[in-house]
Computed example of a mutant assay.
Amino acid sequence: MKTRRIAALCGAATTALALAAGTAQAIDIQPMDWTPLPAGTSIAALYVLHGRNDGVTLNGSEIDGKLTTTFVLPRLAHYFELGGRPAAVSMILPFGKLSDGEIDGAGLNAPSGLGDMIISGGTWLVNNPEQRQSVVLAGYLKLPTGRYDSSRALNIGSDRHSVALQIGGQTAVSEKLTLEGTIDAEFFANNDNADGAGETGKTDTLYSFQSYLTYAVSPTTFVSAGYAAYKGGDQSIGGVETGFKSDRQQVRLGVTTFLNETTTLFGEFTHDFDVKGGFRQDTGLMVRVAKFF
């Protein structure tokens, strides 16, 4: 029983993370997100992300480029029951900085500040803790609270709303192995002044698939290997394709451990490959500290 509760506390920390400037965003998950916490439990978490992007792909062509991304994401979440089922709501307010940006030798601006707020909610359609089996349906709303300047190439904010629907779940593979999978679709409103001249910016629907295989090294330490694939998110301004989209694949490796009974530390390394539009994140690092109360 204690091991199952610890696994639950390690997860349940789904967040929305920026991919890179010029692309759409994705609703990213972390290991054991689909293990519900007891009703009445709350989470205060802090994410720190740092990414190094080397190279840009536009319209199928590889171009020299670079970009450094740094984000800090405070997050609050609360668990309760809805119609007799576990449920949760969450809010994230990102802060970030884009720096050292360059495309084909041309320097880019370096924006920083408040990002777009993300509000989410979900309910567990299936929850069998004895078998570590669950299925979750979740929805996300992103609000254009971030800084945006249509005259600049790079921005922290998007100046538009978006909504996403996500279904995910987990199942036990063995006593110590757990498999998780998630699919989602994100839909974007138009940006009515994407270039400062009144042209409409549009972004196609972004689809993603993510999975993790997690091994319990001990009752308080877990190692996870993950894979993600993103498709869509093609961008255009005034009906003209920009070449930026979110077609890419990613591998992940993470470790979760308990610092004490109610505090977890999670670290993850990510690497993009087969990028077909936008910056390629060669190295991504994330650290998350979460407190449960």
Rank of each mutant, 00 (worst) to 15 (best):
M1D: 11
T3N: 14
R4G: 00
I6K: 04
A8D: 14
L9A: 05
G11S: 12
G11D: 11
A12H: 11
T14G: 07
T15L: 08
A16R: 09
A16K: 05
A20R: 09
A21V: 10
G22C: 13
T23E: 09
A26E: 08
A26C: 02
W34S: 06
P36N: 04
P38W: 15
T41D: 15
S42Q: 10
A45D: 11
Y47F: 05
L49K: 03
H50M: 08
G51V: 04
G51L: 02
D54T: 14
V56H: 02
L58K: 08
I63Y: 06
T68Y: 04
T69C: 00
T70G: 12
V72M: 07
L73K: 06
R75V: 08
E81H: 02
L82I: 01
L82Y: 06
R85W: 05
R85P: 08
A88K: 12
M91E: 07
M91N: 00
L93C: 01
P94A: 07
P94H: 09
F95P: 04
L98W: 11
S99D: 11
D100R: 03
G105Q: 01
G115R: 01
D116G: 04
T123P: 06
T123Q: 04
T123I: 06
T123N: 02
V126T: 02
N128E: 15
E130M: 01
Q131I: 06
Q131L: 14
R132P: 02
G139C: 09
K142W: 01
L143S: 07
P144A: 03
Y148D: 00
Y148I: 11
S150R: 13
R152S: 15
R152E: 15
L154M: 12
N155G: 10
I156R: 12
S158D: 15
R160T: 13
S162V: 07
V163S: 04
Q166K: 00
G168T: 04
E175F: 00
L177E: 10
L177G: 09
T178V: 15
L179W: 14
E180K: 04
G181F: 03
I183P: 07
D184G: 05
D184S: 07
F187N: 11
F188I: 10
A189W: 14
N190A: 10
N191K: 05
D192V: 08
N193Y: 03
N193F: 13
A194Y: 15
A197I: 06
G198V: 08
T200G: 04
G201M: 06
L206Q: 12
L206H: 01
S208A: 02
Y212A: 03
T214C: 04
T214F: 04
T214P: 01
Y215G: 12
A216D: 08
A216V: 01
A216R: 08
V217C: 02
F222T: 07
V223Y: 11
S224T: 11
A225M: 07
Y227L: 07
A228N: 05
A229V: 11
G232W: 02
G232D: 05
G233R: 03
G239W: 14
G239I: 14
V240Q: 14
E241H: 13
E241A: 15
T242C: 06
T242M: 13
K245H: 14
V255S: 03
T256W: 06
T257Q: 13
T264S: 09
L265M: 12
F266M: 05
F269G: 12
D274G: 05
V275R: 05
K276A: 06
R280C: 02
R280H: 07
R280D: 13
Q281R: 15
D282P: 09
D282W: 07
V289S: 03
F292T: 09
F293V: 08
